[in-house]
Design a protein around this nucleic acid. Structure first.
Lengths: 347, 347
DNA sequence: TTGTAAGCGTTATCAT
DNA sequence: ATGATAACGCTTACAA
């Protein structure tokens, strides 16, 4: 494969001049520039980014480790991040942790070895030694969607507490009293916080938080299904199951459907996260939507600031309730149509 | 950041020895190996993959350019590819073309400059000059899901012709005669072939292919919605709309729902691609599922063979029909339960 | 404006 | 078994 040297020889200049033309740095005659460019495409020269990075100690690349690539929340997030990064001249390398600490570590390690300029991490449940090292090592790092307890890292995330409170009030108003919550891993901020918010909201609404109505999953579909099964097997099953993320909601729907139960007559369902297909479920699913696009934009902005060594403002955005029909809402209530998730990617 | 040199100094050996230990190549005394390893983690040394790649001219990385990261078909595919690649010691860098040729080119170029060892490409509609260059340049390349006309590149894809024929027969048996098809871009093999298969199947079933029932979209949701709108505005609208991929089916559902039409009484719907949420739509959507996991496995296998310079077997797998309720199927027909997509990622 | 040459962190060749 | 050193393809002082 052709290199600067070949280009230089063909254009009758030095390698330095070729480099200057390619990076339009310093001053070059229009004549020589033209000759170099001609040589470049005669040879089909493609600059070697590996060599360039070794020399400049920068890759113009950021790493993104997401929780689960099968989760639409994360893919939408990845999309937003990608767009924003590209606009700033950065490429994004995505790693899929599949919600497993060891796989997260695999990618963090790989990305670090590949010398990404910065890292966007949606941390999995445990604080691994590696993550601790990276944090103390001072590599440009921003947590996304989730925090880890006791680690001083700038974080960009959505706060669902207000929306969860609104949801609980909404359910109480509809006459529901037995409400179950399927949370994410307690070690995860998104798991813990949503649970705390739920408990607080229940108490504020004067509803009892029964321990048997507090289930925990791992944010993936199978665990949502299992949790729903346990809840429905209870002597006194809940009137509404509120799933802590969209995949667990999908799992719960699977279970409800397998039992041929009717929504909302037999059991109602609500979901944290809003996804495009919720409007087409029978009946459409009441959900809490996160500002995914904005989350992505802020995350990239924050990381680039860290990379450039500037101080960074952590961001906490608000999630919001989207009322539909899956909790026994009367047919004339608003919110039935339309899609609540900002940036669903469908213009 | 610490390098081999630092490790060597601390361990009291030469850089060559450090390298040997790190790559467990050649023979090293247990004693020195131990000292080197100790030095490595005392310094928190992380090998620089950039330098290594420059020297070895290999990155143990493959590039994957997908059509649309918001399309669950592609994310499931990406997941399968990732798993298979990791098992073979490769990392995957994903680029999202968003079905746009210029964005596809952006990633192809970037990945090539980053010197990926091979490229998995789901080509967008046009044959761009860049793609043509890459093909003739002989870089390890495998087309995935789609082919481009007149280009001699090994391809791994699913053939839906048989399943489409089965779907049409199924619809005919249910008494439908006015069936519309929303295809993908004609320039894309997946667009063209599905259309041809549809036409052939219609004729074989003795049904007329009306030109006004042949719509074209771009595989994204908005175009599916627009096409559905045009079809439903026809003086004699179709009895069933068959969408050429899952996103256009989502768009069509959006439109049908906005018009408060009932499925399948007012209009039936079927989709190429099966996705997990189709079972929860009212009524569950009849679809054609692709063997996504297997597609991913084969693609990686084929690319690795090309990388190692071995000849490669192109693969054509079969898609298959999953009958549900959205086309007026009687309630006792099988296929109502369950999820047709192989590897939906939900154990 | 252009050229020469050093150096980025590895691996690999050739000695020892 | 280990060490010295060249080379990978590029950018960037520094010289001319």
């Amino acid at each position: 494969m052709a290199g600067v040297k070949d280009v230089a020889r063909l254009a009758g200049v030095s390698v330095a001049t070729v480099s200057r033309v390619l990076n339009d740095s310093a001053s070059v005659t229009d004549a020589t520039r033209a000759r170099v460019l001609a040589a470049v495409d005669e040879l089909g020269y493609r600059p070697n980014a590996v060599a360039r990075s070794l020399r400049t100690d920068t890759t113009r690349t950021i790493g993104l480790v997401i929780g689960d690539i099968l989760n639409p929340f994360f893919t939408e997030l990845a999309r937003a991040i990608e767009d924003q990064a590209r606009a700033s001249g950065y490429s994004v390398v995505i790693g899929n942790a599949d919600e497993r600490p060891e796989r997260q570590d695999h990618y963090v390690r790989t990305l670090l070895e590949q010398r990404v300029d910065g890292l966007l991490l949606c941390p999995t449940a445990e604080i691994t030694p590696l993550v601790r090292d990276v944090v103390s090592g001072g590599a440009p790092l921003v947590f996304l969607d989730r925090t880890l307890p006791g680690l001083d890292v700038p974080t960009v995330r959505a706060d669902g507490a207000a929306a969860i409170a609104e949801l609980v009030r909404h359910l109480a108003r509809l006459g529901h009293r037995r409400i179950a919550f399927v949370s994410g891993p307690a070690l995860l901020s998104t798991g813990r916080e949503r649970t705390e918010a739920f408990k607080a909201a229940m108490e504020a609404a004067g509803l009892a938080v029964r321990p048997e109505y507090l289930e925990a999953g791992d944010f993936q579909a199978a665990s949502g299904r299992a949790a729903a099964a346990r809840l429905l097997d209870l002597p006194e099953p809940p009137e509404v199951v509120f799933a802590g993320d969209n995949l667990m909601a999908l799992g719960a729907l699977d279970e409800i459907r397998a039992r041929r139960l009717r929504i909302p007559a037999d059991v109602g369902i609500a979901s944290y996260d809003d996804v495009p297909w919720f409007t087409h479920v029978d009946p459409p699913v009441t959900a809490i939507g996160q500002p995914v696009q904005e989350l992505g934009r802020r995350a990239v902005r924050a990381l680039l600031e860290r990379i450039e060594g500037r101080p960074v403002e952590p961001a906490v955005l608000d999630a919001r309730l989207v009322v539909r029909r899956s909790c026994g809402e009367p047919a004339d209530e608003p919110g039935d149509e339309g899609n609540g998730s900002e940036g669903s990617g469908r213009p």
